[in-house]
Amino acid sequence: MFEYHGWITVRETAAADDEDPRLPDIVDELRLHIAQMDSPYLLDLRWMNGEPFIHLGGSSNHSSSPDVVELYEHVALIAPGSYGLLHMHNDEEPSHENEVRVLRLVRGMVTRHTEVLLSPYIPTVEDPFTG
């Protein structure tokens, strides 16, 4: 099982100014990228209060689809001022099957971490199997 929940604030740069003339073009490119992912789950890009945000979530039998990690890597490449988190539980990931992992996007870099508030998955989130 692969469960994931995440968000991204899309920004061209990490500068704290409100003027970002390329941002609409970046958002248009991201809309095309997201449309090609063809996800049956939550995958939404919208403007709120003058800023673009991506929200995503889902659960699939295997981690191969949709490739949400690739989306974070793509955003890091084309909009390095973006930031966000992706929480994932993948019971097929070697050495991490009992952890909730966090993908962190900040300043054009994507890194992986263990989410200590939800790990170990068993017994923190689910009871041990007793059958």
Rank of each mutant, 00 (worst) to 15 (best):
M1G: 11
G6H: 09
E12I: 06
E12L: 08
E12T: 14
A15V: 12
A16M: 10
D17T: 15
D18N: 13
P21N: 07
D25T: 14
I26L: 15
V27Y: 00
V27E: 00
V27P: 00
D28A: 15
E29S: 07
R31E: 00
R31S: 02
M37C: 07
S39L: 05
L43D: 01
L43H: 02
W47Q: 02
W47N: 01
M48D: 04
L56D: 01
G57S: 11
S60P: 02
N61W: 05
S64Q: 11
S65L: 07
P66D: 06
V68Q: 03
L71A: 08
Y72T: 02
H74S: 07
V75P: 01
A76N: 10
L77P: 00
I78W: 05
I78G: 02
A79F: 05
G81H: 08
G81W: 10
G81Y: 06
H89D: 03
D91H: 08
N98F: 13
R101L: 15
R107Y: 14
R107Q: 14
R107L: 13
V110P: 02
T111Y: 10
T114C: 05
L117F: 06
L118V: 03
L118P: 00
L118D: 07
L118C: 03
T124E: 03
V125S: 08
E126S: 11
G131Q: 04
